[in-house]
Design a protein around this nucleic acid. Sequence first.
DNA 1: ACAACGTCGGACAGCGTTGACATTTTCGAT
DNA 2: ATCGAAAATGTCAACGCTGTCCGACGTTGT
Lengths: 335, 335
Amino acid sequence: MTTQSRATLADVAMLAGVSSKTVSRVFAGAGNVSADTRERVLSAAKRLRFRPNNLARNLRHGGVTNTVAFVIGDLKNPFYFHVAAGIERELALSGLTMVLATTDDSPDSEERVVDALISQRVRALLLIPIADDQSYLEGERQLGTPVVSVDRPARNLLADSVVLQNRRGMAEAVRSLTAIGHRRIGFISNPSALYTQRERLAGYREALREVGVHETAAWERLDDDPDISPELAVQSLLALPEPPTAIVAGNNRGSAGAVRVLRNLEPPVAFIGFDDFELADALDISVVAYDPMELGRTAARLALEHLADPDSFTKQVEIPTRLIHRGSGEIPPPR
Amino acid sequence: MTTQSRATLADVAMLAGVSSKTVSRVFAGAGNVSADTRERVLSAAKRLRFRPNNLARNLRHGGVTNTVAFVIGDLKNPFYFHVAAGIERELALSGLTMVLATTDDSPDSEERVVDALISQRVRALLLIPIADDQSYLEGERQLGTPVVSVDRPARNLLADSVVLQNRRGMAEAVRSLTAIGHRRIGFISNPSALYTQRERLAGYREALREVGVHETAAWERLDDDPDISPELAVQSLLALPEPPTAIVAGNNRGSAGAVRVLRNLEPPVAFIGFDDFELADALDISVVAYDPMELGRTAARLALEHLADPDSFTKQVEIPTRLIHRGSGEIPPPR
DNA sequence: ACAACGTCGGACAGCGTTGACATTTTCGAT
DNA sequence: ATCGAAAATGTCAACGCTGTCCGACGTTGT
């Protein structure tokens, strides 16, 4: 019951009959320690269940930790999870660990959360920007903490960033539809205010303009109320006097909704989603896919590079997307 | 360019013309500081971009941090992600942060990873046990670090644990099949060596015994080679001289495989999966579902309770499952 | 005018570790 | 045996912060 406290260097030193510095040398790996002494120290440490205290170690070394923070809006989106996995994987290679923090998608809490992380002295900060302004991080950046914005560019802050080829990917998808004759193409997006969605919308419009379609507003269903289900958006498109012959979705939320509505429709409506998802192959759904883990890995790599060379210029990296044909995007328009 | 170093209490104190202790008092919230002094300190701190160093603070307070570690085998499984989300959510309520560590599903690295985390002085340890033996954690537990094993019980270690109602959930699913006349019911599981899969298998057998079916070996497809796809397991069941009229899967991997094979089969084969998944509703797939976030939340809560009352008894909590009828599990046997 | 008290601020030490430097020991070469 | 260099070990202070203790005020009541 008596919770005995944890052993320290000094305790081990006492038991082994050496100075604490020697014990430190044994555990820090370096230094010249005779095999005999090392042996004694190790066995004493084992007996006392000694674990070096990284807290103290880090403090001694200038008060920085081995952790990198990843700040997410909302953990429930599986997309972020894969990104996190990529980050973790890449960091582990360099002996760093990842702490995960969430802001509940609330712009206000972003600064609070980041503040707390900085107090924890994280080595670097990876974040998916939510607030409209990340200028509050400027000071940190100047102090040498690498900041990498993921999936969206930061605002009012010079920082490395990793984003997807949103515009290009969506344009490619829409072009593949226009190539087989589609002209009335619907676009659903919710939330649509995000950078990624705006870019994808731009790609959609761009591809349609290329075939002479300039008036797309009627086919666009842009919502920002999470309570409006994508299913409703799709249905409202289908209810138009001249319904679209194809629909594209700005994210996997839209895809899930579209799949539910479009299944078994007669005549079939072509569909292409953005973001791949489990079972998309079983459902023959064409999508604009990319590697979310690669997104994370790249973000981590940028942070590591910046750590290695603090004076390097900030970089903007784009992760490529690719259109996967599975059938739903190859349905020609009726007639 | 010149990376000026971070401001400390002393720097702020100097600028504000007070002692560092006074600055400390301002930031620690407590203490008697006149409004006037507080004002001066705060403005000096702001000017220097001062952030209290939690590392030093924690060291001073006995060398423990505000972080709780969650050790996962492999981040790619979306299931773990939801668990992690639940943990994060619950910890945040108590001002704790979560660090995520992975062991790449390798039993050897488990102890190494955990060791590193303990060196970081995490407050508590939540882990999904992979190794066959967690006795190496016994010392930590005695030193007061709460250890909670998640999804599977720990071996050779007295620790809190949170698991699912695996056996009961699967038995319920199988009973719902036998109730509508099924007797030849296949079971696919890969990897099958895991605790969860063994329990679910036991539930499957139990439910079949209740209706007089004792010989189930022929219907069981238990693999442990990740290269063997669940699709193959399902196909081999269908190739039997007397193929099963219904199939249940031990995890979502199996469900995905089964869905791919069973779609559009004639006559249809009933199916129930374990673990819910996105679009299961669109595909009319019946599943044994549960709340993975609740699993995480409960794990975190157990750790917090143990932290609050170190002498409390260890608890075993079961998270309930429930059978969701969506159609695929309600298909009667042919004839 | 003086004691008694409350408020505010400071000096000091120490949390566990390690870098800088000092000292002792070892051991081969002469 | 003697010397010197290299190897092994030790001493001390400091990383940034806060708990403890103590002193300097200002205020109040007598």
